[in-house]
Amino acid sequence: MKPSLGLRAGAVSLLIFVVFIAAWYLATGAGPGAATVDPAYAKLVGAAAAGGGKSAMPGPDVVAATLAKHLADPFFDRGPNDKGIGIQLLFSIGRVFLGFGLAMLVAIPLGFVIGLSPLMQRALDPFIQVLKPISPLAWMPLALYTIKDSAASSIFVIFVCSLWPMLINTAFGVASVRREWLNVARTLECRPLRMAFRVVLPAAAPTIVTGMRISIGIAWLVIVAAEMLVGGTGIGYFVWNEWNNLSIANVVVAIVMIGLIGMALDQGLAFAQRKVSWVE
């Protein structure tokens, strides 16, 4: 009997991973037969390359060692320029949650209004169409100027970029609630609030959560760029700081962590999506 599809896919994934790591290992010159490097050059290109590789790009072994070092003590805090990667990630996650949460508080009720009222839908449409394509980072100078606080400004930027997918999906989900279900509630003399929470919300929930999932993905993309821009704390700042230190291994570790956290956020909402989905 053939092994299951999941098992075979897992085997292929593992194979790809091994091939990738091996190629990386060889390409960064850490492999057998690698040319020794002029120590003066090594000094020039920085600590990462000083391990004996022929390029400044660290090999997987170096990155793994760096990762192990970070994971052993992720939450140390030795002043503004020397915090553990765990602390930096928590800063970023906190900002994303705050901005995303605020966006939820605005987008879901407003989406309800737009979805229920063709008038509001038409009236707000031009604003949404113009505001939606603006890169969230373009708001940064305005935010810094008015809020005068870099942390709050990045939260504001997260708020702005999380807003649109949730708003548009909520409005769409609410507007496409089957007329029949509303009629059922009406013949049962449902009060408006009961109608909203017991009929419209569950009916539109899968679409709303899809919007939330898109939003959190975008928010996680944007927070890195925003923190690079304003500096201070956060994983984005960490990446930029390590680049300035020419510590490529730290940058690679941060990239891996950003990917893993992004996946976790997405999976969390995928789980919520399964919880609220229904089949007709």
């Binding site: 029949e180 009629n183 013949t187 003399e189 009916a203 929930a205």
Partner: peptide, 17 residues
């Protein structure tokens, strides 16, 4: 609409969730 008059809809109209 009123609870005095119950409707059985053409397409059952049950709430699927």
């Amino acid at each position: 609409p009123s609870l005095d008059r119950a409707v059985i809809f053409q397409g059952h109209a049950l709430l699927p969730w």
